[in-house]
Amino acid sequence: MFAVLRLALLGGALLLTGCAQNPADLPLTREQAVAPPALQYLGVGGYLLRWQGEAIVMAPSFSNPATLGQPPLMVEADTAKIDELMPEAADVSMLLVGHAHYDHLLDVPHVLNKHTPKAKVYGSKTTGHILAAAVKRERIVDVESHMAVGTSAGQWFYSPEKRVRIMAIKSEHAPHFMGIKLLTGELNEDLTSLPKSVWGWPEGQTLAFLIDLLDEQGEVRYRIHYQDAASTAPLGLPPFLAGDVKPVDVAILCVGAWDQVPAYPQVLLKRLQPRLAVLGHWEDFFGNDPRQPQGLRLQDIQAMVRITRENLPEGGELKLPVPFAQLALPAPQ
């Protein structure tokens, strides 16, 4: 089994060889000073969001290991690079991880232990088993066991000051190329050391998240839908919430492998009808410098932009941010 997986991964690496895309023709957003509330893109699937004295971060990833500019076989967090690029985040209380592949989880242990000392991490069982090798167990929350499935709602998890709440949603990870998905599987026991090879970071259960920003009365001021991997509907769609008619204000979508699943992001956007769509995970992450981003190789990013625009409601906006750009949230309704 492992031999087949290695061959598949090597085949994928060969297909991914070549140059990253020049982003000159992409409609990039570069704002750096935006009045709060604002969503800051950190690159890959990572975001930082502050609200009413609390903050949450989503899958920060800065190391971006590579082998001669191509997909790596061995991986290790670059702590110096993380320390250089990670924004101030001591106020973060929740860290969300959608799946356990190295490009979303590799840097999380160092971020948790050094940059977000008050935060708990919320993710799948596999995510927890990997992180247990380097993070205290009491800081790891299994939301897979309480996720929304289909139309059935999951459990809300609240931040310490109850200004943010999150609900995990059963989702999936799109195939990487030609219908082939790499690094599948899950872990069932805590690790004692962090994996050194990419095969040690299996996907686990992929999750999407609803993120609600609450006012002093506990009312939802903003609702955000976050995905760090493209999915086939109905996986990833929000559940039915009895008595709750709050619409989604912001949809955070994944460009990587978007064309490997049917009708993404059309079905999701038709369901969410967001006022703002944010396209992340669009830039190449094999040994890149996030301050000089290049587009993912073998991805038609322009087509993703066009299809997203075509499926937004009237007045809806699209943003394709460069790493560290800040995006203003729509005016509250």
Rank of each mutant, 00 (worst) to 15 (best):
V4H: 10
L10G: 07
L15R: 10
T17E: 13
A20M: 06
N22D: 15
D25T: 11
P27M: 09
R30G: 00
L48E: 07
A59E: 13
P60H: 10
S63W: 07
S63I: 11
N64R: 14
T67G: 04
G69L: 04
P72A: 12
V75Q: 02
I82P: 00
E84R: 15
E84H: 14
E88C: 04
D91E: 14
L96I: 11
H110R: 05
H110P: 02
V111H: 08
V111E: 08
V111Q: 08
N113K: 08
T116Y: 04
V121I: 13
S124P: 04
H129E: 01
I130F: 02
L131E: 05
A134K: 12
R137Y: 00
V141Y: 04
D142K: 09
D142M: 07
S145R: 13
H146T: 09
G150P: 03
S152A: 15
A153T: 03
W156D: 06
S159W: 02
I166W: 02
M167R: 03
S171W: 12
P175G: 08
P175D: 05
P175F: 11
F177V: 09
K181T: 15
L182A: 05
E186Y: 12
E189F: 10
L191N: 08
S193E: 13
P195W: 13
W199C: 02
W199M: 15
P202D: 11
P202R: 10
P202W: 12
T206V: 10
F209Q: 04
L210G: 01
D215S: 08
Q217S: 13
R221S: 03
Y222N: 04
A229I: 02
A230R: 09
A233Y: 10
L235Q: 13
F240I: 11
L241G: 02
A242G: 00
K246V: 13
D249Y: 00
V261F: 12
V261D: 07
V261K: 10
Y264W: 12
Y264C: 01
L268H: 14
L272K: 01
L276K: 00
W282Y: 02
D284K: 01
D284M: 05
G287M: 07
D289E: 11
G295D: 11
G295E: 11
L298Q: 15
I301T: 15
V305Y: 06
R309S: 09
G316N: 07
E317Q: 14
L318T: 03
K319A: 12
V322L: 06
P323A: 07
A328C: 03
L329P: 00
P330L: 04
P330F: 06
